[in-house]
Design a binder for these strands. Structure first.
Lengths: 224, 224
DNA sequence: ACCTGAACACCGTTCAAGT
DNA sequence: ACCTGAACACCGTTCAAGT
């Protein structure tokens, strides 16, 4: 008995694409897998999106819509940098939870209106520092670059073994730390100096500390 | 007449892989293209590397070897932060010139000994600030995260049309700027405030300004 | 307007066989 | 020890045909 003619919608296509990405990561999102989930044929998807790039841009914007909602709902405090910090951490957490996001976020704002709104929202917080346009633009670029860049970096870190649950993140870090300890202290004084910090560190702490440096620099500039 | 039996070497495999990456980008590096360049069969490459991941890790480390040489050759000044800045800019320039680098750099230091040496070298400059291990580790993480993250971000920016020479970067930025100007100033005050800075901006300036923020924050921490 | 199966031109990777 | 062609199991994308 042949399958009945399926019926989709842009909404369902994007929702199911996000579901695949969340459950199994970037590599698992194929047109065939998506079609299977939607209960239809592969070619149907091409009626909604022109190609895979557009599919990923739309999937990205879809989840950024939620993130933007969470970020925008927060009340502003009297300290713009504190608000910027809160937003940056929320964005970082969202990207960390969905490592596939980092590679596509803000790539094409035509297909990502929510990402553009997020950009605007963060920019408005920087504007409150009353810096000239150039410094304002650069400050937001720095914060966004740091957040997305670091999240992308950390997001791709865990190799297959960790993802498959054969090893924990701690063991994985520990193995690397062990190699650092075995290196020649003459040649690698830095590795030896920081190895105990590296071993067992939390990505979120590392991110947070770096963000504080950027924001401290920004505060200095704003107070001048 | 059948082709003569080809003879490769790890060196030639990696060199030609880098050549393909430099000339035509990430997508152009296929085992078939590489085999064609080496004048042999596809399967031969698998005698040298286990899979494509290893090929890319080795290609990355190969070019990082040169970058490390350039960076390490510079004389140290009396200001560690100035030296860190110089190194960071050199690394950024190298990654910008080879956008494919960003995604693989420091991904697997077992296969990237030069990348580990580069990490150590930058770390040693941070060490001169005499911060405790934790702050030292976080400071280097922040700088590396910012440099690689921003370079990766900027490196993927130009869409196909620009790469194919159908449009210049300026026109591309200009088209986006035009859309910013057409947006509602009530809803997008930030876009309007910075649009003239965005239009025609140089990536290197944007990077440099953000790096200054990170380093200003670091200097503040070191002087405490 | 929307969906379909089948085909096309690619991939990375494996393998049994050669030199 | 090193190289080979052919095959395998996948991809994204297209297309002519259906409803």
């Amino acid at each position: 008995m042949p399958r009945r003619r399926a019926s989709h919608s842009m909404e369902s296509v994007i929702t199911e694409a996000v579901a695949i990405l969340d459950e199994a990561g970037s590599a698992a999102l194929t047109f065939r897998a998506l079609a299977g989930r939607l209960g239809g044929g592969v070619a149907s998807i091409y009626w909604y999106v022109d190609n895979k790039e557009e599919l990923l841009d739309r999937a990205t914007d879809h989840v950024i819509g939620d993130v933007l909602g969470d970020i925008a709902r927060r009340e502003a405090t009297e300290d713009p940098i504190e608000d910027l910090r809160t937003s940056a951490v929320m964005l970082f957490d969202a990207v960390t939870a969905r490592p596939w996001l980092a590679s596509y976020l803000l790539r094409n704002t035509d297909l990502q209106p929510n990402a553009l709104r997020l950009y605007e929202h963060l920019g408005q917080q920087v504007m409150r520092l009353d810096l000239p346009p150039r410094e304002t633009f650069h400050a937001l670029s720095a914060v966004i670059g740091y957040v997305i860049g670091t999240a992308a970096d950390l997001g791709q870190q865990p190799p297959a073994e960790v993802l498959e649950g054969q090893t924990t993140r701690e063991e994985y870090l520990g193995r690397y730390a062990e190699r650092w300890r075995e290196s020649d202290p003459q040649d690698y004084p830095f590795l030896h100096y920081v190895v105990e910090e590296f071993d067992g560190h939390q990505d979120a702490d590392q991110f947070s500390a770096g963000l504080d440096l950027v924001l401290a620099g920004l505060r200095l500039q704003a107070d001048r």
